[in-house]
Nucleic acid binder design. Sequence first.
DNA 1: GTCTATAGTCGGATAGAC
DNA 2: GTCTATCCGACTATAGAC
Lengths: 220, 220
Amino acid sequence: MTDPDPKLVSRDRLIQAAIEIFAENGFDATTTRMLADKARVNLSAIPYYFRSKEGLYQAAVEHIADVLGERLQPFVQRLADLSGKGLDRKTARSLIGEGLATMIAVMCGDPDTLPFSKIIFREQMAPTAAFDLIYPRIMERVLKAFATLIAAATGESDQRQCDLQAVLFVGQVMIFRAGRATAVRRLGMEGYTASEIAEIQDIIQSRAMAVLDFMAANKS
Amino acid sequence: MTDPDPKLVSRDRLIQAAIEIFAENGFDATTTRMLADKARVNLSAIPYYFRSKEGLYQAAVEHIADVLGERLQPFVQRLADLSGKGLDRKTARSLIGEGLATMIAVMCGDPDTLPFSKIIFREQMAPTAAFDLIYPRIMERVLKAFATLIAAATGESDQRQCDLQAVLFVGQVMIFRAGRATAVRRLGMEGYTASEIAEIQDIIQSRAMAVLDFMAANKS
DNA sequence: GTCTATAGTCGGATAGAC
DNA sequence: GTCTATCCGACTATAGAC
């Protein structure tokens, strides 16, 4: 994919390269030689800066958590502000739609963030120590935000119900990343072009609205 | 997990062991020694029976396709029979609910089939040649069946819409496998006990019905 | 068919010059 | 901080006895 910016110092070039390569091949199939080549750095720079291959992996995941956390911040902030003033149903619904569309773009479209989600997915399927770096800063914040929005959008007061639905709302999106091979093949897609992403965003949003209507009408 | 049945011949013990170990560690992190140990077979049995580690992996995937394909057969057959006679909405809806519940049980509960879904998920995230063994015999059949049922349950005549929704219905279930680490943590689960699975089945089914109602009311 | 022994390769990490 | 050279362990696969 993209080669690391040659202006960056070795340490940063290694992190850049690590994100790409680990995303593509996973931890085990990645060799330190691949990493050094991609970063245009000497092999010994890895143990020098990061102590080991695993140290580099963890630094890469930490970087992902930093970047995604920062991108998440405005959304969470906006939600906190609105919650203080009492969040009306219409606003909550539109924020849910907006959040879902953004997530699809991040996970399926944007070539800068796509490797992030690949790594996060691998961590979810087979968590390592790095999962603890990412869960509280990303997953938990997103899921809590969605639970709040769902409650506000439907009037559902059962917290458990909102938490479960939040997992399903977010999960809905993730399936196009985790089940990409199947989805693309079955739907005859080329692999998430702009118009294919629009189609996915569209159906996920309308589905979400259907569920919100149903929840509002059938509170537990 | 389970050790291979000692009554089986070496070849079969190796396949049994391979399914467990590849599911747990993925292809690269699995060594031929692990496989031979678990199967209680000499290391050389692997190249002898399967030519290579990769040959064993493919044989294991083929076995998975056989077993799941057989388990799928009655469901597909029943659907074909019913389709001939004209499938009414109520029956279609209950078959969808039943299918979803079964999938959750297979993917999250049943310790015999759980390793199958782990391997299938790894293949979806990073397909190898083995994906072609499993896609047409499992994924495609399931998705086509769901698309047919969705059409019958809602009266939606747009094929594309039904195919997309089928991916989402099935995807909904898969998220509890692919996103297990997050779901379990966020929902304070122990890791899919019987009652936790019942809770998941319940919410997924009610969500599915909400979407079907919505589709029936808003045909494209 | 099952075993031992070993070949041949490659990986991660280190030592030490510059 | 960056390089070369190299060690050492682990891996897959093969050769060949039984």
